[in-house]
Simulated scan of single mutants.
Amino acid sequence: MRIKNILIAHTGSSAFASSLDYAVKIAVRREAWLTAVYGNTNSYFDQVLELTPELTKKLGSVRADRIAQARELFESEVTAAGMSDRARFLMPEDVGKLSPAEIARHFDFVVTGFHPNRPADEYRAVSPDIIALQSGRPVLVVPEGYAATGLADHALVAWDGKRAAARALNDAMSVLEEKPRKVSVVTIGDLLRDTPAAISISTHLERHGVEANFIQVRDSGRDIARTIQKTADEIGAKLIVMGAYEHSKFSQDIFGGVTHDVVRFSSVPVFMSH
């Protein structure tokens, strides 16, 4: 995938700053266009409670202030990066009633933030998993407060051989191919041993010029999300590439899932596709 058209989705909180910083770095590196949109979402309380006209007006004023602040930060960052001619901040009137997922379909991929320390804000924030599920586009989730002097020089690919993992791997291939980026493929159990060499993921990567290091983690029945995070920490990976929601979103919401847990607790950016 050639990266030339990037969407950054405002999450409605301070997580926007770290995701914006990372998105600008990618856009500069790729000489890409960068478009920002404020999440066209309402909070749980807005949806459930019957608010008075006065309170609705006050909330509208607060939202307008946040949009103005986000736009000011966006314009400041892209100007400092020397890419004002390839950047645009979309206002609510520009997108109408389109959801972030619908908007995302017109871009190569989406960058957004996540703020795991604010559980109540999950109802207000642009949901990265929903965007990945509904848009058909990969999503890069940057943790709140994440700061990096450059782009990730070591990527961990979580590989289970399933459809979503294959989609994420190929969506991220242009990133993995960059030199001198290091790539580590992490599997749990005997997955690679059971795959014929002629059609193995290692052969696929080799043909793309990616010299990957393969790490096999013994299947001890531990939480897979924690295993991925722990391995990323141990090897110093600065990016996690993984499939999103191999099972239904509903079942993962009810019973919990790898995607949500990795995104929620990761200390490094997560690139995911559904």
Rank of each mutant, 00 (worst) to 15 (best):
R2Q: 14
I3P: 04
K4V: 09
N5I: 14
I6M: 03
I6P: 00
H10A: 15
F16Q: 03
A17H: 02
A17D: 07
V24N: 03
V28S: 04
R29D: 06
W33A: 14
T35L: 06
Y38N: 15
N40F: 09
T41L: 10
N42C: 13
S43G: 14
F45G: 11
E50P: 11
T52Y: 03
T52G: 07
T56D: 02
K57T: 14
R66G: 09
I67M: 10
F74I: 02
F74V: 01
V78T: 01
R88Q: 09
P92I: 13
A101G: 09
E102D: 12
A104V: 12
H106L: 13
D108I: 03
V110G: 08
V111Y: 00
T112K: 01
A120L: 11
D121E: 07
D121K: 02
Y123I: 04
R124K: 10
V126T: 15
S127F: 12
I130D: 14
V139G: 14
V139F: 11
V142W: 10
E144G: 11
G145F: 01
G145C: 10
T149C: 04
G150Q: 07
L151M: 03
D153G: 07
D153K: 03
D153T: 04
H154S: 05
A155F: 07
A155Q: 07
A158T: 09
D160C: 11
D160A: 10
A165H: 05
R167E: 13
R167V: 13
E177A: 15
E177T: 15
R181N: 06
S184K: 01
V185C: 10
V185I: 12
T187A: 09
I188G: 06
R193F: 03
A197G: 10
H204D: 06
L205S: 05
E211V: 09
E211A: 14
R218W: 04
R226A: 13
R226I: 06
I228Q: 05
Q229V: 09
Q229T: 09
K230R: 09
K230V: 08
I235K: 06
G236P: 02
A244M: 05
E246K: 11
H247P: 01
H247N: 13
S251C: 08
Q252S: 15
V258P: 09
R264N: 07
S267P: 04
S267C: 10
V268G: 06
P269Y: 05
V270D: 02
F271N: 08
H274C: 12
